[in-house]
Nucleic acid binder design. Structure first.
Length: 464
RNA sequence: GCCGCCAUCGUCUAGUGGUCCAGGACGUCAGGUUCUCAACCUGAAAAUCGCGGGUUCGAUUCCCGCUGGCGGUACCA
């Protein structure tokens, strides 16, 4: 079977949601593994929730993450367009076809009636389903009424029986038909609902595997019914776990950063994010925690995916990110840092500082707090330096005399100096550190002084 | 409420009838190293395998029930 999978983000948020990244990763990896196609389809059928620029940012984030898609709204493909708002006539056509076949019907109920209906259902403790009033309208009457009245098209759910489907990781799942709602397929604004659009497009785009999160399980029977009514072949359904907040609720922006842009701004590396996500619901056969996307692709199988919703743990992501930073070679890390801070930083200083910070930062954003003093003189000092005025000045004088300005010379000189002054190394180095950087936590001192240069160090020993 | 999915250390997970008084990783704690902080090394604590029944010579592993968590229940996706 030709493998074609898709992700279907809706442009209703600030950016790509990290939960969508997870689903995208599963789809991407599955496609790559089977030499299939990974497709992005934008599901922009809800005009009320549409967010300006969202689609653009979603696509940009996918690229940033290196989840490169083969077909999509901006790059086209054999089944274009890949934006549902540009496929409207299609959905109408198929919805009408269903009405024609008797598997769907026009509904003229107003929003007010539906609200009222649900209210009574609630008080009578009945199921909150559409009462199927318009299902009784004769087909001919429906056809003529729709010419002058606002209407939607609803799916006709069988009154009896069950609708079942097979999920690749959860097995057989079945639902009683009498618990299913006569779902709206075509809204009164002419846009399809997700349910219609997803089925039509998945079929038309020849999607072989529908890999999505588990919150779609309960609407899958409606999709199955649609596939059947149309006489189309069912894709393989795979419902992965839903990422959770620490309290185990569905991952939300209230409790967790969810937008990819946040992770980018925080200095997480795309490869670390993907590696971390790969650990959700799946584990490497050799119990490895760190592996590349290629290796993940090689070892991954959908069947091994667990159905439990894992909690998203930023702490572990940070650790993993640190591991990835340490694996980067110096020039690569240098350019990532330079890239991360859009403002102009002196390349040579960043380059020299890289070996000093590589083991000290977990995120790219950790760089500046640690290295700011290499670029500008400290404004504040985390320690009162008054008592050490003389000490620092004479240390400055001593440093000035060094002819070969390098870390080891500086180190030896300072150790000797501390000895002469009968101060403990650790105490002395701390005073010097704060004088030069303003901070108690810095990269190794000698190397930092080397980078700063003799003149600047001398200056900072005199002025604080 | 109803329907559905799920259930191993705090978190991510391994394991599947005996080799598991449950293994790894993050985190935590202690120690080592050290000019600070990291990194690194060593070690420790941490899961009566949600509870109760079965099946079995034997269940974390199979079955049932319960409980709990989560999801769905829209002219949102």
């Amino acid at each position: 079977m030709k493998v074609r999978v898709r992700i279907a983000p809706s442009p209703t948020g600030e950016d790509l949601h990290i939960g969508n990244v997870y689903t995208a990763l599963l789809n991407y990896v599955f496609a790559k593994k089977h030499n299939g196609k990974f497709i992005v389809r934008i599901e922009d059928t809800d005009r009320t929730r549409l967010v300006e620029g969202s689609e653009e940012r979603i696509l940009k984030s996918l690229r940033w993450l290196n989840l490169i898609y083969d077909e999509g709204p901006d790059i086209g493909g054999p089944f274009a367009p890949y934006r549902q708002s540009e496929r409207l006539p299609l959905y109408r056509k198929y919805a009408e076809e269903l009405v024609e076949k008797g598997n769907a019907y026009y509904c003229f109920c107003t929003a007010e009636r539906l609200i009222e209906m649900r209210r009574t259902q609630k008080t009578k403790r009945e199921l909150p389903l559409y009462d199927r009033l318009c299902r009784k309208i004769k087909p001919g009457d429906g056809k003529s009424r729709k010419e002058k009245e606002k209407y939607v098209i609803r799916l006709k759910i069988p009154e009896k029986g069950t609708t079942a489907f097979h999920d690749l990781i959860r097995g057989d799942i079945s639902f009683e038909n009498n618990l299913l709602d006569d779902q709206v397929l075509l809204k009164s604004d002419g846009f399809p609902t997700y349910h219609l659009a997803v089925v039509v497009d998945d079929h038309l785009m020849e999607i072989s595997h529908v890999i999505r999160a588990e919150d779609w399980i309960s609407s899958t029977p409606k999709h199955v019914l649609l596939f059947r009514y149309f006489g189309w072949q069912l894709p393989v359904f795979v419902h992965g776990p839903l990422l959770r907040n620490p309290d185990k609720s569905k991952l939300s922006k209230r409790e967790n950063p969810v937008w990819v842009s946040w992770y980018k701004e925080e200095g997480f590396l795309p490869e670390a994010i993907l590696n971390y996500l790969a650990l959700m619901g799946w584990s490497h056969p050799e119990e490895k925690d760190i592996f590349s996307l290629e290796e993940f692709t090689d070892k991954f199988t959908l069947e091994d995916l667990k159905a439990v919703g894992p909690a998203f743990d930023l702490t572990k992501l940070e650790w993993l990110n640190g591991e990835y930073i340490r694996k980067l070679d110096e020039s690569e890390l240098k350019s990532r840092i330079l890239n991360f801070y859009d403002r102009e930083l002196p390349q040579n200083i960043v380059g020299k500082s890289v070996p000093l910070v590589r083991e000290r930062i977990k995120k790219l954003s950790d760089y500046m707090p640690l290295c700011q003093f290499l670029f500008e003189r400290p404004e504040k000092y985390e320690m009162d330096l008054k008592p050490y005025d003389d000490l620092l000045k004479s240390a400055g004088d001593r440093l000035k005399k060094i002819t070969k300005w390098n870390a080891s010379e500086i180190g030896e000189t300072m150790v000797q100096f501390a000895e002469e002054k009968k101060i403990k190394n650790s105490g002395f180095f701390m005073v010097l550190r704060v004088a030069v950087s303003g901070r108690k936590i810095t990269p190794p001192l000698n190397e930092s002084l080397e980078i700063l240069g003799k003149k600047e160090v001398f200056y900072r020993c005199q002025n604080f």
